[in-house]
């Protein structure tokens, strides 16, 4: 059976579900960020798969933008984690009751 766009979509859906599961259930802020990365990557697979399907480059360019967005998100998210850890000595999202410092 040749590998078609449906296979890539199925892979992306599986990865997205795994990532969403991690975002909802993990209690460690860093693990939540990593699960978000999984979800963004699954979206990238869909963009690139449809770019291949349509024979154009727009999907690849958008996937490139998503990568830049993910880098920015990780940078600010990790800075937030460090600032939060300095105040509260924890990165458990259940204990994040207070954002003031």
């Amino acid at each position: 059976m040749t590998v078609g766009v449906g296979h890539y979509l199925a892979l992306a859906a599986l990865l997205f579900c795994i990532g969403a599961f991690g975002v909802v259930l993990r209690r460690n802020f860093l693990a939540v960020l990593m699960s978000l990365e999984i979800m963004l990557n699954s979206a990238n697979i869909v963009f690139v798969a449809f770019a291949r399907q349509a024979g154009g480059h727009a999907g690849q360019v958008i996937a490139f933008f998503v990568m830049a967005l993910a880098a920015a998100e990780v940078a600010t998210g990790l800075a937030l984690a460090i600032a939060w850890f300095r105040v509260a000595r924890t990165v458990n999202v259940d204990e994040a009751g207070e954002m003031k410092h």
Binding site: M1, T2, V3, G4, V5, G6, H7, L9, A10, A13, L14, R52, Q53, A54, G55, G56, H57, A58, Q60, V61
Partner: peptide, 28 residues
């Protein structure tokens, strides 16, 4: 997911020459 997996392909556009090369990507 299983339905998408079993259906597989669908028609693909013919790839233009140099599809996915850095030149073409940079042009876009």
């Amino acid at each position: 997911v299983g339905r998408a997996f079993l259906r597989g392909g669908g028609s693909r556009a013919e790839l233009p020459a140099g599809f996915g090369s850095i030149e073409a990507f940079g042009e876009a």
